[in-house]
Design a protein around this nucleic acid. Structure first.
Lengths: 254, 254
DNA sequence: TAGTGGTCTAGACCACATA
DNA sequence: ATGTGGTCTAGACCACTAT
C-alpha cells in the first residue's frame, strides 16, 4: 500500500461527491464554480477545472459554459449507475406505470438473498414483492430484499408511487451494481402474476447493488419474454452517435 | 453548427487513434511519449498529457508511470467496445472452445438482417451459421451477416479457429455496438443444434456493430437458457471494486 | 461588465523505471 | 543519469451568458 498523498484534484472531487451524497447538494443545485473552488481550497484553477471536468465525465455534474456547474438530475444520475428505473422507462415510452404491492414485510429472505447480501440466513430483511404494469399490462415482477440498516424507512414507502429502486437511490447513491441476465420458464406464481401465456419464457434479471462497499440490496426481476427486452447502445467516448434505435424495452446498460 | 477550431488536445487524440485504427500502431506498441508529442506537434506538455490521459481513460492505451504509454491489447480493446468474444470467455473459464460451421456463403440475408444493415433486401451478404461449444457442449448458435465490402475476406476465414467477432475486430476497430437481449422459445432447428431439452427457453442476443459510422455486421446469438447467462458488474470511476463475483457465464457489458 | 467554463502554455517538482 | 508519467501552478485568451 503506497499511501502517497491524495492528489489535490481528487480531494476536490471527493469534497463535491460528499456534498452530493449527503444531500447537501441536490440535483439541479449549483456546484461551486472553478474560481470559488480556487478561493475555498487554495488549488489553482487548472486543478479545480480537472476536478469538475472529471465529475462531469463521470456523470455527477453537468457543466454549461458561461452559466455554471450543476448537480446532475435523476436521469443523469441513473446513467452513472447504469441502473434504470422501470417506472421512468415506461414513462419514457409514453405509457403509464402502475404497481401492485403483493407483499411487504420485515422477514428473513431466502438462502440466495441472504448469501448475496452477505448476512446470516435467518437475519431479517426488508422484503417486498411488486408487480409493475405498463399501461395496465404486467411487465415486471420485482422480488426485492434490502438490508434494513441501510434504509430503515424502506417499508414505509408507498411503492405504488415510488419504485424501490428510486427510493434506494434517494437514500444513498449506489456505488456498485452487479447483474445477471437469464432466460428461464416461470413458476406458476410468476406466470399468473405476469399474465403470461403457456410456453412463454421469462427474462430474469438478478441485480445486486452496493453502497459504502457493502451489498445493500438484492432483487430478482422477472419479465414476460414476449413483452420485454433489454437493449443497450455503446459508443466509445469521442464518437458521434449514429441514428438512434427504436427502443422497445428497458435500456439496460453495463 | 458552430465550427470552432478543434481543440489541440483533441487533435492529438485523433492523431493517435488514427494510427491505431490504421494498424500502424499495434496492440502493445509504444505510443509517443508526452515529450515526443510536444516536439512533434508543438503543443505544451499539459496538452499532450491530457490527450494521452483521456485515451487511457477511454481504454485506447495503457500508461505506466516511469515506463511509457502503450496501445491497449485485445483484452483491453474489447473492453472498450464492451463486446466480448465467446471463445475468449470460454477459455477464461478454463474450458475449451470448439466450433462447427453449419453454413457459410454469400447470399441475401433475411429481411431483418437487411433492414438492420441498411441495405436492399436482395443485396448479397456474407452469411455464416456457427455452433460454438464449451468443452463439447453447445452453448451458442451464431447467425451472422456481414456487409461484404467491409470485410471482403470474411468468408475465407476458418471459423473453427477464429470467431467471426474476433476477425471483424481485427479488420477494423468497431466504433459502435448495439444489442438487444430477449428470452424466447427456440425453433426446432435451434433446439436441436443447441441440444436443448423440452421446455427450455433461449437467451437471444441480437447485436449490431458499426464501423466508420455505418452498420457493418448483424448477429443473432442463441443460447440455451439452462447453460448460459449474461453478467455485468459496474463500478463508477474512482471506486475501489469489491470482491469479485463468480462469473458463470459470458460477461456482457454494454 | 462580470462571471462562467474551455483551453493552452511554460515552467516546475515528484516517484518511479531503465540502463 | 535519463526518461517516463503524475501532478500542480499562475498566468493567459477565448466564447458564451447573464445583468
Amino acid at each position: 500500500m503506497n499511501a502517497t498523498v491524495t492528489p489535490r484534484y481528487r480531494q476536490v472531487k471527493e469534497l463535491i461527491i460528499r456534498r452530493i451524497s449527503s444531500g447537501e447538494l441536490q440535483p439541479r443545485d449549483r456546484v461551486p464554480s472553478e474560481n470559488e473552488l480556487v478561493d475555498a481550497t487554495g488549488v489553482s484553477r487548472m486543478t479545480a477545472n480537472r476536478a469538475l471536468r472529471e465529475l462531469n465525465d463521470e456523470g455527477y455534474v453537468e457543466r454549461i459554459a458561461g452559466v455554471g456547474t450543476f448537480v446532475a438530475d435523476f436521469k443523469a444520475a441513473s446513467h452513472v449507475l447504469e441502473v434504470r428505473n422501470i417506472a421512468a422507462e415506461i414513462e419514457r415510452r409514453g405509457h403509464t406505470h402502475s404497481a401492485i404491492v403483493l407483499f411487504s414485510a420485515q422477514a428473513p429472505g431466502d438462502a440466495a438473498a441472504a448469501a448475496a447480501l452477505n448476512i446470516a440466513a435467518d437475519a431479517p430483511l426488508s422484503c417486498v414483492r411488486i408487480v409493475h404494469q405498463e399501461s395496465g399490462l404486467p411487465i415486471q415482477l420485482e422480488d426485492r430484499y434490502v438490508v434494513p440498516d441501510f434504509a430503515p424507512d424502506f417499508l414505509r414507502q408507498d411503492f405504488r408511487i415510488t419504485t424501490p429502486s428510486a427510493y434506494l437511490s434517494s437514500v444513498s447513491p449506489l456505488q456498485e451494481a452487479e447483474h445477471v441476465v437469464r432466460a428461464q420458464m416461470p413458476d406458476a406464481f410468476t406466470k399468473k402474476n405476469l399474465e403470461m401465456s403457456d410456453q412463454e419464457p421469462c427474462l430474469v434479471v438478478t441485480r445486486r447493488t452496493w453502497a459504502h462497499g457493502n451489498p445493500v440490496s438484492f432483487a430478482r426481476l422477472y419479465h414476460p419474454g414476449s413483452r420485454f427486452e433489454l437493449s443497450g447502445h455503446y459508443t466509445p467516448p469521442g464518437t458521434k452517435t449514429s441514428e438512434r434505435h427504436p427502443a422497445t424495452g428497458e435500456t439496460e446498460n453495463d
